[in-house]
């Protein structure tokens, strides 16, 4: 792991400032709620990802300090679980379901269409930082396969056409503003 600039601060300084930082409010609340017990790690990482969209090295350092866990442990957990991401997400998120029902209903063709049009594969973000494409293992909306999440909204019975339209709408909206 490379060191970065903020590491010049002593861990204590940086931790102290974060305990009061409003951006860390949720993270701090969850840790406090669990009495700073090490078993709160996954819950805390959820709070961090909800707050920042991803889990940065800086956040991991802070959590490791507060929960008295080695940084390696925090890193191991953050990278073991697929739900956590260390890469900052794009402005909009499209999570394509690749579960069984969606797969046989043609989710792959939707993925191909997105890759062709926007030049991103699952796990990647467009170069302008607008759209991230992710995949999931089943959204529990199999009755409406193929399904995907657009930002926070689940939508079903998708086709390559209406998915591309949704992504285009996001882009056009940027052009408007």
């Amino acid at each position: 792991m490379q060191t970065n600039a903020e590491a010049v601060d002593t861990p204590l300084d940086s931790a102290l400032s974060k305990t009061k930082d409003p951006q860390y409010r949720m993270v701090n609340r969850i840790m406090c709620l669990h009495n700073y017990q090490p078993d709160a790690l996954i819950e805390t990482l959820h709070a961090a990802q909800d707050s920042f969209g991803c889990i940065t090295l800086e956040t991991m350092r802070y959590i490791s300090h507060m929960l008295h866990l080695p940084l390696s442990r925090v890193y191991a957990v953050a990278t073991f679980y697929h739900y956590f991401t260390l890469k900052p997400p794009g402005k909009h998120r499209c999570v394509l379901c690749m579960g069984t029902a969606c797969y046989i209903a043609g989710a792959e063709s939707i993925e191909k269409a997105i890759t062709e049009k926007h030049h991103i594969s699952p796990g990647e973000t467009t170069s302008d930082g607008e759209i991230s494409l992710l995949t999931a293992r089943c959204l529990g909306s199999c009755g409406l396969a193929p399904a995907a999440i657009f930002d926070d909204k689940v939508m079903g019975q998708l086709t390559p056409k209406n998915v591309l339209k949704q992504l285009q709408d996001w882009r056009d909206h940027v052009a408007d503003t």
């Binding site: 090490p38 078993d39 996954i42 819950e43 959820h46 073991f80 679980y81 697929h82 739900y83 999931a136």
Partner: peptide
């Protein structure tokens, strides 16, 4: 309530316990 984090193996009973304890599942 404990939230999973997208690992199928955590449905296995010893893995679920590890996960609840805040460890890799």
């Amino acid at each position: 309530i404990r939230l999973g984090a997208g690992a199928f193996v955590c449905g296995e009973e010893t893995a679920i316990i590890a996960s609840i304890e805040g460890l890799p599942g």
